[in-house]
Design a protein around this nucleic acid. Sequence first.
DNA 1: ATTCTATGAATGAATG
DNA 2: CATTCATTCATAGAAT
Lengths: 224, 224
Amino acid sequence: MEPTNEDAVASYSTKGAFLCRQSSTRWTPTTDQIRILKDLYYNNGIRSPNADQIQRISASLRQYGKIEGKNVFYWFQNHKARERQKKRFTTDPHHPIQKFRTSANFAPSNDPSTGLALVPSSSPALPYFGYNSRESSASPRYGWVTENQLKAPYGVYHYKDQEADEQEDDSFAARETLPLFPMHNEDFKSSTTSSNYYNSNSPVPYTSLELSLSSYFSQSHDAH
Amino acid sequence: MEPTNEDAVASYSTKGAFLCRQSSTRWTPTTDQIRILKDLYYNNGIRSPNADQIQRISASLRQYGKIEGKNVFYWFQNHKARERQKKRFTTDPHHPIQKFRTSANFAPSNDPSTGLALVPSSSPALPYFGYNSRESSASPRYGWVTENQLKAPYGVYHYKDQEADEQEDDSFAARETLPLFPMHNEDFKSSTTSSNYYNSNSPVPYTSLELSLSSYFSQSHDAH
DNA sequence: ATTCTATGAATGAATG
DNA sequence: CATTCATTCATAGAAT
């Protein structure tokens, strides 16, 4: 019943690419899906949608082509990661080589046949001891001292800066993300949890997800 | 020969055949390790092994390659979390349906790949399908089942995953986990909190860990 | 057809 | 437990 072309990944509206029928492999987002995803990302500040949001988003995007929750999940995950990665390179405090394709060799020792090589091998002793709380799960948090420590780590930076992004995309024109009509958002409770704000010049007055989504397709999709 | 294949990783066969050995610091499970971990997870109901179990498991898996306790710990954490997450944004929270899915396909008795568990597995190293690179290659570990599958346009659940994961999920999945030899399961209680083991929808009539583990490398060989 | 690149998918490791 | 991050593997399409 639904317009979702369950097979054959919708053709791209732009470009040629007439249906290619490569279904069953990886998801190939349609231009509309991408457009909306980016809009949600940049104009609504959605970076890591929660399960609920993911569900709604994918449900909404389904009208533009086959898509599943995991696709949405990965999309945001990747988009965010790559944006961050890109930024990290440009502002990297210690401009490493970064782009040198590594394609070739410089095999770092170790002989493939036996593997290991460097590690002191498995010393049965000193196994982890981080977790211990109650019966099962435990948080390693800091323990884990093992033979790994013998290895020489090179600069381990672990900085997780939160936001900051730029309007790189803006490829598509006017976003009419305007909240106009009423909706049946009876359950958008935690929607705010992931609303990130970016530090600066983002116009983005993030609206609620349903609001945003609703603008893409006039109204109601399904009624469960 | 030896199951010492802890070199793990190995290159992917595509294109050029030069191994890329990223010598990363992170644990790269061998196919055997994964096979066993999954078996413990699915066929023995181990979800959050306690420190003691972790220790034994990792010690056991060590024969298949380098591994530490924390790896086991994280593996279970992640596996469980992802299985759950997958379900979260795959399943419609408002739709109680969705309880059947798959499970009807493969022989319930024991799953083809990870199954065994019961067999003394005289040859610890290898069956499994070809690859060893990261064990990945086309096996998406998790199912990501969505309504798409419910529609089953082609009437096929081709989960490109031979691993046949899931099946956990409060299912019954009749598993005759080898009720053969005497088990002195006096110690698998571990859970201190006794009965709260798997709160409710717990699957699997777990067997004692040692029992399970013992089946993997019953007769052992190598023995350095 | 082969190579390259952008990006989907996966997963180890953390953190809260 | 849920979330997040970093890396890496895999591949659809474009470029060559």
